[in-house]
Structure formats: C-alpha cells, structure tokens
Computed example of a mutant assay.
Amino acid sequence: MKYVGEAPQEELATGEHSTRNRVARSILDHGPSTVSDLAKRLGLTQAAVRRHLDALAADSVVEPRDQRVYGSRGRGRPAKVFALTDCGRDAFDQSYDQLAADALKWIAASAGGGAQGEAAVAAFARARIAAQAESYRKSVDDAGPGGRTEALAKALSADGYAATARGAPGQQGEQLCQHHCPVAHVAQKFPQLCEAETEFFSQLLGTHVQRLATIAHGDGVCTTFIPRAAPQTAIPQTAIPQTATPQTTDHASESTAGRNPA
C-alpha cells in the first residue's frame, strides 16, 4: 500500500477515488484505450494509470482486450486496451427510468387515457409481477409455515430490493421491509406498480396484507404488514348444531352462511 507521502503529485491534487473516476470516464468518452492513451489524456504517469486500471478491473468496471487493428498489422502482439464492462457503464448516467415512464405513458395514451389508460397500466403492472411469480412462489412454498415472509424477503433481495422480515411491534404479524426499490422513480408517477406488487404479496402469502409505506411515496422504506394466521381451534362436536336432512325447495341454492339456525 502506498502512503500519502509516496503518492504522485497528480493524485495528491485529485484524490484516489476522483482520479479513478476520471480514468473510467475517459474510457467512456473515447472508447477502449491503451495505458499510453489514458496517461496522455489525463496527464498521469503510465504507472499511475495501470494502478487505477487494476483497481477498476478488480471491481469489474473495466476489462482488458486485444486492440482491434484495421488493415495490415505490424509485427508484434497488438497493444492491450481497456474497455468498460456492462457493470462499468451502469455506473454512469442512464435513462432507464425515463424510458420506462415514457413507455407507460404511451400505454396509457394508447388505451384511450383516463380510466381506460389507468386500467391498461395496471394490467401491465400485474403482467410484470406475474413474470417474476414462479421463482418467488417456489421460495415461499418451500419454506415452513413460520418462514414464508422471510423466504419472500430473501427472494426479493436476490432481485435487488434489499428486503428483510421482522416481527411487527405490538401487532400480531410481521413487517416485510424493502429498503430499496429499483423502480421507485417510475412508481412515483404510476402507483399501479406498487398496487400490483401488494396484490401479488397477498396472493402469494394467502392472506390480506396492508402496505404501510412506500419509497415511491417519499418514505424511507417500503413496508408491508402481514398478519399472522390465527391458530384454528377445534369446535367441540356438541357445539355443532344438528340439522335435519335438507329438503329440496325453491330456495335450496340460497346461501345461509352466517345465519343463526332457525
């Protein structure tokens, strides 16, 4: 490890992290680059550039490649160039949120706008959740009765939601907390995304759930309350009213659920 007293003067002026970002940005702006190219553009020594490239490669931000040579190639091996990986490109500004919002606006407008447009966006949101349903369902179904919420949290975390499950203070149930939402900016404009997710949680866990907070609404965490299933108590046989064999009448199909026996 090199201490501050041993660092080159250009790194003392800009700082390690800032210089590393400049190296990556130069590759983004100019394409795959050699160590020599980067050193000239940034005013750094080649040794300093190599050290930053090694760190960026260790973080999967850049990767070395053989330089493409067009036309006749001279003697010797082609120079190595460094290019950004997909992970490296994702670290820079992206327009995915705007693209998604524009697509949903188009869906709403194409459906006629108003209530019809909102219904079309809601249908898209449900279809999006359905595409993820199988992996989530398997995780929850494989968990024991007391571990279903925890299993869902782990499945959500695998998709980038940084989810946890914990007991709800003072309530008979659990809280599913999502500390990150990859679609929060879009969900601010289209709450149907959050509503479809809540519906899916309810279907998946087989119980009514209540969304208490969402990142899209400005809260720090997306929080969903999941009530704990009440234990079923066996009803004594003597407490079950004995009824006569039903006779066929014009009202035989009428529901009697919840009524007191005559």
Rank of each mutant, 00 (worst) to 15 (best):
L152W: 04
L44S: 02
G112S: 06
T223S: 10
R148C: 01
A48Q: 12
D37R: 10
R126M: 00
S255H: 00
V186T: 10
Q192K: 03
K189E: 15
G71H: 10
D29W: 00
A122V: 00
E254V: 15
G144E: 10
P169Y: 07
T256G: 04
L204T: 10
R22A: 14
S18E: 14
D141H: 00
G113R: 06
D250E: 12
G117V: 02
L42W: 08
S72T: 14
A100S: 13
G43V: 12
P64N: 07
A216H: 04
H30P: 10
A57I: 06
A127D: 14
A127R: 15
A162N: 15
H208V: 15
V49E: 13
R20N: 08
T214F: 00
D66V: 13
A257H: 00
Q67V: 04
F225K: 01
V61M: 12
F124K: 04
S72M: 15
A234F: 09
T224N: 01
A234G: 03
R41E: 14
F190Q: 03
R51L: 13
G112N: 06
G220D: 11
A111F: 01
G113P: 04
P78I: 07
L212C: 02
C181K: 01
Q188A: 12
T164E: 15
L38F: 04
T249Q: 12
A187H: 04
A151M: 00
T256S: 04
L176Q: 03
R65D: 09
V69C: 09
V81N: 03
S95P: 04
R50M: 14
G173P: 02
C194P: 06
P246R: 11
R65W: 00
A165P: 05
V81R: 07
A24C: 08
Y70V: 14
Y161G: 03
S139T: 06
A213H: 10
S60C: 09
R228M: 07
P231Y: 02
S95G: 12
V121Y: 02
L99A: 12
G170F: 03
T224M: 03
Q116Y: 03
S135K: 14
A257I: 00
C222M: 07
Y70L: 13
G117H: 02
A151I: 02
A153D: 06
G112R: 02
Q132L: 12
K105R: 15
A262V: 09
Q203F: 08
P241K: 13
N21K: 11
Q192L: 03
A162G: 07
A239Q: 13
A83T: 01
L12K: 14
L156M: 08
A230V: 08
F124I: 05
Q132W: 08
T14V: 14
L42E: 13
V23D: 10
V183W: 08
L42Y: 02
R137K: 13
T164I: 14
S36H: 14
E6P: 04
A91K: 12
A79C: 05
S139F: 00
A187W: 04
V4P: 00
A163S: 13
A83G: 06
R20L: 06
V209A: 01
P191Q: 01
R166L: 11
R128K: 11
